[in-house]
Structures are given as structure tokens and as C-alpha cells.
């Protein structure tokens, strides 16, 4: 099982919409996919219309006797399952801190279901904390959405430096998110930033009203607006990620 995490230190950059739509695209090409909603806001859980509830709370889930399998819920998308979030995840750092090896805990929970899935996508809350370190320990690659702003390269630099100090860091796969081509700054940065960070994925997720419609529709974009540029962009983005996994 390949473990990916949609991760950014910043909030509101499109992590959850990416996690949901990339998971959909992964299932569409025949992967058995698990989305783990680690964000107490539970937006990924919401998009899949699943009740936001961590049975027994986060402490029980990440505790020594916790098992991911008992928390899994089928979604309405064939081949895609989800571990839902609830508000108890706001104490994830605290509960991880109470375990023996907090930075390895998420990895060990995922390893126990590793033969049931081809891909796990962790939808992470915006922060850099103990929970983030545990995500880094569990992930093969971080999918990092980047809004083209002047601070973006600084944020990516910070993440790169932090992971550089880790013993076995995940790969960083940045990509542009919420891009507005009408803005000159966006156009310029989409052109220039990949020269600075060669691993930048080439697909660009636009800032589109179709993506906002995921809220009222409560479904992955391609299920209700498959022909939109945004849906195509997620499909292309997944094709890039997929090519790195299955050659």
C-alpha cells in the first residue's frame, strides 16, 4: 500500500478537495483506496456524506489497542473507503503523545490494513506538530497544494528544511492549487516556482466554482461535473502521481 498525505502548513489551500478528488480518481483506475480524515473539521467525511464519528474517540483509535479496520466506512464510490473524523481529533497530538512511539503510531495503524488497500490518502489538518511528524513517518509522499503567492516558496522551503532533518523523510510533491489565471502574479509564479522546485507536478488545479460546488453536492467533483476543467485537472494530477507509483 502506498501512503500519500495531502499536507500543508497553511490552511485553506485545497488539501481536502485534493484528497477527495484524487481518491476518487485512484478508485476510478482500479485502486482500492482508503481515505483517512485526520482533520477535526471533518470536511472529507462531510463530502462523502458520512457521519462524523470516531467510534470511542481519537484516544481509543490511536491508543495501543486501537485498530483502523473497525473505523472504516464504505463510501458511495466503488473501491473507496474512509476513516471518518470528528471533533475529538483536535486532541490528536495529545493522544499520540501518550503512545509509546508517537511518530510511528499512524504508520503502524496503517500497516495493519496494508494488504487491503493499494493507496491510502491522509487528509491532514494545517499545522506542523507531533501529528504532522506521525503523518511524515507514515507517508511515502506528501502531496502539497501550493497557492501561487509570494510566501509559497518560503513555506515550501520551511517544509523541505524540516523534513531534511528527519531520518527517513517522505517525498514532497508540490502542485499548484486554486490558481486564478486572470491574476498576473499567479501566472508568473506558476511559470517560475517549478524552476526553483524541480519536483513540482505539472498539473494545475484552478480556482473554480465547480470545486466549491462539492459542498452542496457532497460528492467528488467528477461525479457531478466530470467535464469541467477542474475535474480534468484532478484527473491529470492523479495520472502524474499514479505514474510514479505504477510504471
Amino acid at each position: 500500500m502506498k501512503v500519500l498525505a495531502t499536507y500543508s502548513i497553511k490552511g485553506g489551500v485545497g488539501k481536502t478537495t485534493s484528497a477527495v478528488n484524487l481518491a476518487f480518481e485512484a478508485a476510478r483506475i482500479g485502486a482500492r483506496v482508503l481515505v483517512w480524515d485526520l482533520d477535526p473539521q471533518g470536511a472529507a467525511t462531510y463530502f462523502f456524506r458520512i457521519k462524523p464519528r470516531v467510534k470511542g474517540g481519537t484516544q481509543r483509535l490511536v491508543g495501543g489497542k486501537g485498530e483502523l479496520a473497525t473505523h472504516v466506512r464504505a463510501t458511495d464510490v466503488a473501491g473507496l473507503q474512509l476513516v471518518p473524523a470528528d471533533f475529538s481529533l483536535r486532541h490528536l497530538d495529545l493522544h499520540l503523545d501518550g503512545t509509546k512511539r508517537p511518530t510511528e503510531r499512524l504508520a503502524s495503524l496503517l500497516a495493519a490494513v496494508g494488504d487491503r488497500y493499494d493507496v491510502a490518502i491522509l487528509d491532514c489538518p494545517p499545522s506542523i506538530s507531533l501529528a504532522s511528524e506521525s503523518v511524515f513517518g507514515a507517508s511515502d509522499d506528501l502531496l502539497v497544494p501550493v497557492i501561487p503567492t509570494t510566501l509559497s516558496s518560503r513555506t515550501l522551503d520551511q517544509l523541505g528544511r524540516f523534513l531534511g532533518d528527519q531520518p527517513a523523510p517522505p517525498g514532497i510533491l508540490p502542485y499548484f492549487s486554486m490558481v486564478d489565471r486572470r491574476k498576473r502574479l499567479h501566472r508568473d509564479l506558476v511559470e517560475s516556482l517549478p524552476r526553483q522546485f524541480p519536483d513540482f507536478l505539472t498539473s494545475v488545479i484552478p480556482n473554480a466554482s465547480a470545486i466549491e460546488r462539492m459542498g452542496p453536492e457532497r460528492a467528488p467533483l467528477a461525479t457531478f461535473a466530470p467535464a469541467t476543467p477542474a475535474a480534468h485537472a484532478f484527473r491529470d494530477l492523479w495520472a502524474e502521481v499514479s505514474a510514479r507509483i505504477w510504471t
Binding site: A27, R28, I29, G30, A31, R32, A74, A78, G79, Q81, D115, R116, Y117, D118
Partner: peptide, 9 residues
């Protein structure tokens, strides 16, 4: 026997 069905168009 052990996992969810996988679908491919």
C-alpha cells in the same frame, strides 16, 4: 477474499 472490490473502466 480479504478486501474491497476494485473497478476499472
Amino acid at each position: 477474499d480479504a478486501s474491497l472490490p476494485a473497478h476499472l473502466a
